[in-house]
Amino acid sequence: MIKFHIGRTGKILLLFVLFGLLLILFVILSIVYGSVQIPLQDLVNVLLRHGENIVYNKVVWDIRFPRALASVLGGAALAVSGLLLQIFFRNPIVDSYVLGVSSGATLIVAVLMLTGFTLGIGTIPSYLLSAGALVGALAVVLLIVAISCKVKQVVTLLVIGLMIGYICSAVSSILVAFAEKENLHNFVLWTLGSFSGFGWDEVIIQAIAGGVLMVIAYLFCKSLNALLLGENYARSMGVNIRILRIFIVLISSALAALVTAFAGPVAFIGLAAPHLARLTLGTSDNKILIPATIILGALITTLCDFLARITFSPVELPISAVSSLIGAPIVIVLLMKRRTSL
């Protein structure tokens, strides 16, 4: 009995260490590899600010390091967001964008990018795009929070979220129909998501905001665990369901909005990372699952970003394509091996 307990905790610890090491490995890989190869010895020097090679310095500090960190932070944020919503809706096929966050962001970006010329703006600066995406995403979040206070059934909220998503997508597609070819290409690329072009300012914003949100999510793990038994049981044990609902919608959407603002909608991480964490660790206990999801989300995203960059270099693949192509088969295999449902 006790032996079994140690075995289980031991396995979980081991997996955490393994995932951690893999994450570090992938971060190093994505800094080292690329059109300019950086020998490991030089990397150490560059990181310690001893490097004399200006090219190396610039590539590492201005391009690859912030990009790697952005994918670590973005992946973690999307994964936690997906996990919260999967618990909330008690539905395994829910991801971080299910409440329409990405559609709201996409709509504003579409307005900016596709009608920019008519508005008299020449080339649109990236900070404006990020700000626009954030505004679009947060507008949808506020709308959803307002609605979530009114509806009784969580499923209703899910359907409303999907409908808002459809409306935003519909408007975006109308804009697409009238768009000029050149703008359209850029817009489509944006909708596929990318961590390229991240600067330190953006990384710092992501680190602070994302970090705070993820810590808050972890502080709620006791209530989130109670919610695994459903709202009625949770309430009978003393959980304030109203507050918990608003909290989940707010935190999960804010996390998704944060990533979408800078990187565009990155598909699949929010869906796959929680599953991978659950299935590899064999638990739904959020005290373990939240940190595990953070590490796995970061790990998968960093790997996918790396592959997207180098596979057909110099052409960069959309990260959503890579994450779906790699993640989906893994989730399917893990699911087939399990006897129980999610």
């Binding site: 695994l228 459903g230 009625n232 739904s284 999610l342």
Partner: peptide
């Protein structure tokens, strides 16, 4: 002071 056992079917996941 009070506990409940409800009819709804539960699937709490890997717990």
């Amino acid at each position: 002071t009070m506990a409940v056992v409800l009819t709804e079917r539960l699937s709490p996941g890997l717990i």
